[in-house]
Simulated assay, not measured.
Amino acid sequence: MSEFADVLATLRQVRGLSPFFALDVGRPDPGWHDGAALLGGPALPDVLGRIADRYRTGEPRVAASLFFLGYSARLLCPVVAARVVGGAVPDVRPANLWWRYDEDGLRVRLKEPVAGVGVAEPLAPVVGALRAVTPVAAGLLWGNAASSAAGALRTAARAGVATAEQCVALGEELFAEPPLRGTGVFVPFPGEVVFRRRSCCLYYRLDGGGKCGDCALT
């Protein structure tokens, strides 16, 4: 099969795991941003302000964390699942993305179904862009990415796509190099993927917010 066909076949294979694993392809309706808009210009500060208003927080770093939680989950769920099933990993670098933020939250889609690179590399430019406009720690953002990847592995194991042991082994491989190295640890637990991160996403700082299941503060 061609590269396009391989990527599309993998996306079809994993999209049923949960809505976060569904990654559509092609030019969207008007109102979406090119992925490059994440790296400069007013779009990213604007969406961070909208998130701050929506969640009633006066802390820009909390809004940045919430944005990146959604962003990393939307992209790493299909990317990690592709690794679990041994399929073609899609290219989720900003240059190959469309995105928008509205009342339904953050949505992303691919421009082209082409194969990509790694897990961390596609996210690094957005981490840099967030830190350029918001005083948020890099370790916090990479902890969010690790949490998203571990959540994807947990879902894949529970769905029977692979065993929990296989998913944990893949997670340890994915987190073996910077910037994901040191973001957390997989906790041995029979038949389950259990991950404990070493940073906090700051969700607890929202009104009515609490601590996540993998939070370092619990």
Rank of each mutant, 00 (worst) to 15 (best):
V127W: 06
V79T: 13
R198G: 00
C212D: 06
V85P: 10
V85N: 14
L153R: 03
G86I: 15
A129F: 03
V108A: 09
W98R: 02
H33Y: 13
W142Q: 02
D207V: 15
R181V: 07
V168C: 07
S72W: 02
Y204E: 00
A82I: 00
A73H: 12
E103Y: 07
R100P: 11
F195P: 09
A146W: 09
R56P: 02
R131F: 00
N144K: 10
T218A: 05
A82F: 08
V126Y: 05
G160M: 08
V25F: 01
G210Y: 02
G35P: 02
G41A: 14
F186A: 05
K211E: 06
L17I: 13
S147H: 05
A88W: 10
A145C: 07
E192R: 14
G208I: 11
P188E: 03
A152H: 12
C77G: 01
F175Y: 11
A138M: 07
V126T: 04
C200E: 07
L76C: 11
R15K: 13
L123D: 06
V7K: 13
G31M: 13
V127S: 11
A150F: 05
V14G: 09
V47A: 06
G116H: 05
F189N: 15
D102H: 06
V25Y: 04
G213D: 14
R107D: 11
G118A: 10
E3W: 01
W32N: 03
V194A: 14
R107Y: 03
Y101I: 03
G171V: 12
A82G: 15
A5C: 09
R83G: 04
C212T: 07
R74K: 14
Q13P: 03
L38T: 01
P19C: 09
V85Y: 15
D102Y: 01
V136F: 00
G151C: 06
A22G: 08
A52H: 06
A81R: 07
R196F: 01
A169E: 11
R50Y: 10
W32T: 00
G182I: 02
D214Q: 03
A43D: 11
V127N: 04
V126G: 08
A115G: 09
L110R: 07
A138T: 04
Y101M: 12
P94R: 10
W32S: 08
P90I: 02
R196G: 04
G171I: 09
R93N: 12
T163H: 14
T155N: 04
Q166G: 15
V187S: 06
R74V: 00
G16I: 00
W142I: 02
D207P: 08
F4V: 14
E121S: 15
A132S: 14
G16K: 06
V194P: 03
K111S: 01
T57M: 04
G70V: 05
L39G: 09
D104R: 15
G41E: 13
D207Q: 11
P90M: 04
P125K: 13
G208R: 14
L174K: 09
P45E: 08
R109V: 02
L141N: 00
L66T: 11
